[in-house]
């Protein structure tokens, strides 16, 4: 039982790391490959010359609300991930040393 949970936690962790790497890569790509990223952004209309402030606002507000929409999709998932009472209840609160100790033990075995 305990082992099972442990595995689940591991899977979660791996998933999280993967996501972080993916997001990180994306950001990295945007910085290093500025040219490519920019072409992409021009292609999808994210950068276009603006002559009036009113058009500029229509554009930035559109992007902002789109991002907010994505945020609303992410936040509840994040909330449930953190606030999962069942998962938390099964695991005692452990310090970092304890966790490492357990891991080290396992490796030793």
């Amino acid at each position: 039982m305990h082992n099972n949970n442990h595995q689940k936690g591991l899977v979660n962790l791996i998933l999280l790391i993967q996501i972080t790497i993916a997001v990180g890569l994306m950001l990295f790509g945007f910085i290093f490959q500025a040219e490519w990223a920019e072409k992409f952004m021009i292609g999808v209309g994210m950068i276009k010359p603006m002559h009036t402030q009113v058009d500029y606002y229509t554009y930035i507000k559109g992007i902002e609300y789109l991002l907010c929409f994505y945020y609303f999709l992410i936040f509840p998932v994040f909330f449930m991930f953190i606030n999962n009472k069942k998962a938390a209840a099964k695991k005692p609160v452990r310090s970092l040393q304890m966790v490492t100790a357990i891991e080290v033990d396992k490796i030793k075995q």
Binding site: E38, I47, Y56, Y57
Partner: peptide
């Protein structure tokens, strides 16, 4: 081309 994406108030 980035310069053409201006800050607000500068059109």
């Amino acid at each position: 081309s980035l310069k053409s994406a201006r800050a607000a108030g500068d059109f």
